[in-house]
Design a protein around this nucleic acid. Structure first.
Length: 824
RNA sequence: GCCCGGGUGGUGGAAUGGUAGACACGGAGGACUCAAAAUCCUUUGCCCCCAAGGCGUGCGGGUUCAAGUCCCGCCCCGGGUACCA
């Protein structure tokens, strides 16, 4: 370990100073321009890990930078403190989740402070705090009253590991739980939902206006999955008044329908199955329903093998008045469209595969290109085999087919979504209780505001039963109706913790309001969040739920109408991997920040995270990483020595300061200082922190040479003070200490320096001379050199002459003062 | 399969179509020291004894005076997503 400045003493000193001085506390009536910077509030799982460090380092840099630029920066912090780990710990150890969570919060808060990240702690929020629960429940109640929260019986995702239901979004593609990794099964349960689908269009369309990473927007678009299509009914042959409704996005292909398919769960399956086919259909259906979703959806193994059975019934194609057989098959899902399709094997690969398996006819209705090699053809082309649609392009044919269906009264256009309503009830204890009672007389009744917050009792038994511990707590469960006073049963499920995180950023604007979740004025002051920073893992879940809440609360009048989106800009940082997988507590591959706090300090660790690569990129932690962190520490020590080298003496550091008229060397350093200001400011704005750090290092190296060779006093002072100011958002402790020792006061209260455009101009430029695209000479020239002078210099160059070799110059491209390119 | 990213020295990474490899890690050498650590300085893409020169940004083509950067076709790696009709 290097001999160095006193890391621990200095870092501890400034962490206290920033809080006692209230440098980063902002009031809602602050006159400065307002900016809201927010890192996703964490689940408190104990001391911060490197992912947190990275996140809060970026956030803190922006907060300090914008503050120096003169803005009032809202930078709050809180804890997403409801959740499963605390309850699982309670089941295991008997420690109450509140006690367990309190300890984890204290650890996390301590390490966040040790990182030197500054927040307005007066605004701290904890999801499990009664003052927060109260308003979560209030909002739920308002949603219920507005018809946005409702209860229904539905087949839901049940995770045996977590002993609770999950939202669709929480089930991974392979059918496992995103939390526990257990295989999720289907169960029919009475559950609470929030009507996210009511906002499907807006959630989709408003993505366009957001300054978010394109891939996050794409993921949300795919998740919402809007498709425009047609629903139409087909008469069942020989069954008067019985119709099968199907959904298609390609009504133009109806002439190519050679069969129809219903999902195994389709309600008409009984009616449609004839006696002769009953046995086969029944056994197929039983088999299909038993198959788990993963099996049913696994395409890698059986993509070409579609399973199904003939029902014995026929549907009449309204376009041809010909009958087609109706099959039941599990490649059709009950949850989408009408749970029934018209099958067009010529233009749909799944239908094609099924048709091949069952020997059904295949008719093309779009002419594929001559060289088409595939099976089903989904591209553009001319309509064929389609009577009155023949010759048309697909879009025209779609319109005509729709018109036809509307005219005969059998169909209409419609929009379908992949998005489902959000299932929010959880059979767990450590979450926000749902403030509804079920009254024998009045039905579902929300608790009035004066009875909120409804808090879960402490004296419950934590057992892995699959039911909320609240359900076995008689005093909690049995209650009276707030409406009529009659007997009532309390809802014993709690809310998904994503409910808490869907509005916390609003509460930060007005965290102590005891009349409302937040006031309109406070929201107007701060919202929307100008910069939101967090992990890509929340691309769909949290970010879409928060958007939904914002829109719903806006419609309910809690936000001003113009606030329809919570997060104007989103930045998703790269993750930190170790040994090929994401560094996380559950994987047990953490490299704890504490050991760096204890040795090289928080500043070095922060600098490392900024320096190691583009913030959006993933980073692989390796054996060399400690060396790089050490390198950052070395750099900070170099800054320490060069800036305090006059006051103290350091081995090997030689600084000679003189008073004199500025010479060329001094002017050059002055220029470089202004260039540094421009470079670092620009890099801060474009999230290019690694290059900003590199520029600071380069400049420090320059100062060593300058100081060693005799520096002019005012130039050197200006250069060093500028360096310290530019470094202050990145490595706040050491910058604060150096500044105080040199100048007194707070570096973070200084104005961000502004580069003088005059001094940004170089006094020499390197003119590169290319011959046939190859660099043949470099000539130092005046930046304002004119073309004849430059050409004259080029003509004097022996290297250029050698490369030209007496050949004729056909062309000359001149881009002064940087480049002249000769073509011979 | 589809949709995004990404392939640049030993390593992490720089580079508005205009000097490829900034900065750092690691390596080599030197100064200081009784010695070491720390510090400071020099050097470090490859070929070549050196120089001159040549070769170099996953592969193959193309556009251009000029391509890591733009276009076309591939290969590999990472992530997301998946019977959504």
């Amino acid at each position: 370990m290097a001999e160095s400045y006193n890391v621990k003493e200095i870092e501890a000193k400034w962490q206290v100073r920033w809080e006692t001085e209230g440098l980063y506390q902002v009031d809602n009536d602050d006159p400065r321009p307002k900016v809201y910077i927010l890192c996703m509030y964490p689940y408190p799982s104990g001391a911060a890990h490197q992912g947190h460090v990275r996140n809060y380092t970026f956030g803190d840099l922006i907060v300090r930078y914008r503050t120096m630029k003169g803005d009032a920066v809202l930078s709050p912090f809180g804890f997403d403190s409801f959740g499963l780990p605390a309850e699982n710990a309670a089941i295991k150890t008997g420690i109450h989740p509140r006690v367990f969570t309190g300890e984890r919060i204290a650890e996390l808060k301590d390490s966040v402070r040790k990182l030197g990240a500054v927040y307005d702690w007066r605004r701290e929020i904890k999801s499990h705090d009664p003052s927060y629960i109260k308003w979560s429940q209030y909002i739920f109640t308002k949603f219920f009253e507005a018809g946005l929260a409702y209860k229904k019986n539905a087949p839901v995702n049940w995770c045996p590991g977590c002993q609770t239901v999950l939202a669709n979004e929480q089930v991974l593609a392979d059918g496992t739980c995103e939390r526990s990794g257990d295989l999720v099964i289907k169960r029919d349960l009475e559950q609470w939902f929030l009507s996210t689908t009511k906002y499907a269009d807006e959630l989709l369309d408003d993505l366009d206006q957001l300054d978010w990473p394109e891939r996050v927007k794409t993921m949300q678009r795919n998740w919402i999955g809007r498709s425009y299509g047609t629903k139409f009914s087909m008469q069942i042959e020989g069954r008067d008044g019985l119709f099968l409704e199907v959904f298609t996005t390609r009504p133009d292909t109806a002439f190519g329908m050679t069969y129809a398919v219903i999902a195994p769960e389709h309600p008409m399956i009984e009616e449609l199955t004839t006696t002769g086919c009953r046995q086969e259909v029944e056994s197929f259906r039983a088999e299909a329903l038993e198959r788990s979703d993963i099996e049913r959806q696994s395409t890698d193994l059986n993509s070409k093998t579609k399973r199904g059975a003939f029902t014995g019934s026929y549907a009449v194609n309204p376009f041809t008045n010909k009958r087609v057989p109706i099959f039941v098959a599990d490649y059709v899902l009950m949850g989408y469209g009408t749970g029934a399709i018209m099958a067009v094997p010529g233009e749909d690969q799944r239908d094609y595969d099924f048709a091949k398996t069952y020997g059904l006819p295949i008719i093309r209705t779009v002419r594929p290109p001559e060289d088409f090699q595939g099976e089903a053809y989904t591209g553009v082309g001319e309509k064929i085999n389609s009577e009155w649609l023949n010759g048309l392009e697909i879009d025209e044919a779609k319109a005509k087919a729709n018109e036809f269906l509307v005219n005969i009264g059998l169909g209409q256009t419609t929009t379908e979504y992949r998005l489902r309503d959000w299932l929010v009830s959880r059979q767990r204890y450590w979450g926000c209780p749902i403030p509804i009672v079920d009254c024998q007389n009045c039905g579902l009744v929300p608790l009035p505001l004066d009875q909120l917050p409804l808090l879960a009792p402490d004296d419950v038994e934590f057992l892995p039963t699959g039911e909320s511990p609240l359900a076995t707590h008689r005093n909690f469960k049995y209650t009276t109706c707030p409406n009529c006073g009659g007997e009532a049963i309390r809802e014993t499920d709690t809310m998904d913790t994503f409910v808490d995180s869907s509005w916390y950023f609003l509460r930060f604007c007005d965290p102590t309001n005891d009349q409302l979740p937040f006031s309109q004025e406070a929201i107007k002051t701060w919202m929307p969040v100008d910069q939101y920073i967090g992990g890509i893992e929340h691309a769909i879940l949290h970010l879409m739920y928060a958007r939904f809440f914002t829109k719903a609360l806006s419609d309910l009048g809690y936000l001003s109408n113009d606030i329809r989106e919570p997060f104007s800009r989103l930045f998703t940082q790269g993750m930190i991997r170790l040994g090929g997988s994401k560094m996380s507590k559950s994987k047990g591959n953490l490299v704890a920040p504490q050991k760096y706090f204890d040795t090289v300090g928080a500043d070095s660790l922060r600098l490392f995270h900024l320096f190691v690569g583009p913030p959006a990129d993933d980073f692989d932690w390796s054996d060399q990483t400690d060396d790089v962190i050490e390198g950052c520490f070395r750099f900070l020590n170099r800054v320490w020595r060069i800036s305090l080298g006059e006051a103290e003496s350091f081995p090997g550091v030689k600084i000679e300061i003189t008073d004199r008229q500025l010479n060329d060397a001094d002017t050059e350093v002055l220029r470089q200082t202004h260039r540094l200001i421009a470079k670092v400011s620009e890099d801060y704005e474009r999230w290019s922190y690694n290059t900003a750090v590199a520029a600071l290092m380069e400049f420090t190296n320059l100062l060593y040479k300058y100081g060693g060779a005799s520096a002019e006093r005012s130039t050197f002072t200006f250069a060093v003070d500028t360096l310290v100011k530019l470094l202050a958002p990145m490595a706040p402790h050491i910058s604060a200490e150096i500044w105080e020792r040199r100048n007194g006061g707070f570096v973070h209260a200084q104005k961000w320096p502004i580069a003088d455009p005059e001094l940004l101009k170089a006094d020499r430029e390197t003119l590169v001379v290319q011959v046939n695209g190859k660099v043949r000479d470099k000539i130092e020239v005046d930046p304002l050199i004119d073309e004849p002078t430059a050409i004259a210099l080029v003509n004097q160059s022996e290297k250029v002459a050698a490369a030209v070799g007496g050949k004729e110059i056909k062309k000359m491209i001149v881009k002064l003062p940087k480049m002249i390119s000769l073509v011979v």
